[in-house]
Amino acid sequence: MKDAVKIRILQGDPIVHDVKNVVLPERYRGLPLIEDKLCADSCNKCAVVCPTNAIKLNPVSIDLGLCVFCPLCEETCPESIIHFSQNYHTAVDERANLKITSEVKSISPQMTSEKIRKYFGKSLKLRQISAGGCNGCELELNALSNVNFDMGRYGIEFVASPRHADGIVITGPLTENMANATKICYEAVPNPKVIILFGTCAISGGVFQNSEALQRKFLQENKIDLFIPGCPPHPLTFINGLLDWLNKSK
């Protein structure tokens, strides 16, 4: 008993109280900011080095749905136009909003429909499906339940059975071998239900986009509610994305 108390005291108060305004390490790469400067004539260095084809030119834009935050483009640009900020608020509800141009200084999801907020605003239970994820994304989702992030305090939790869930969170590029299980699991979730894509792999296939072992039909056939970019995304990106989306962040 004495030892238990001692360990509890060592534990201290590890929780992140204000999830909105955390200062992440200096080298953390969050939302990229693109300066409104002209590129040198016919320069395409950033687009060439990008491992996932996330960059389009004239004007420069980065698709966060493809980006793996490596950060070769930032390093390569001779004009230092691209700069990764520490801003981890990068979740969106529309795929197109992941396209970052020099005009975009922040992104966030629109508040969801009244119906969804009425159903899930107080309690949202999610079933996670790993479909080719490398376990980076899975570990960050697991971290959401640890004593630091404690997502349960917002009424958002992962559950074992899809029958008890209000939606699914997909990680990984959706492998052929998981196509069937993904579909079955989603069908087992009662209506209304949501789909959240966590990580670059799930959003676009990322570094695996050209693999022949993928089967991403499921994503075309269903409406995606929330996109959480990152490789892997920071747990705080997930929490804040959901809070904004459910209109729970005060």
């Binding site: 790993s130 080719g132 490398c134 492998t175 052929e176 071998n177 299980a181 570094v207 695996f208 072992a213």
Partner: peptide, 11 residues
């Protein structure tokens, strides 16, 4: 196993 197979070696 094999559900996570995404062809890393080929890629």
């Amino acid at each position: 196993l094999g559900y996570q197979h995404r062809g890393v070696e080929e890629l």
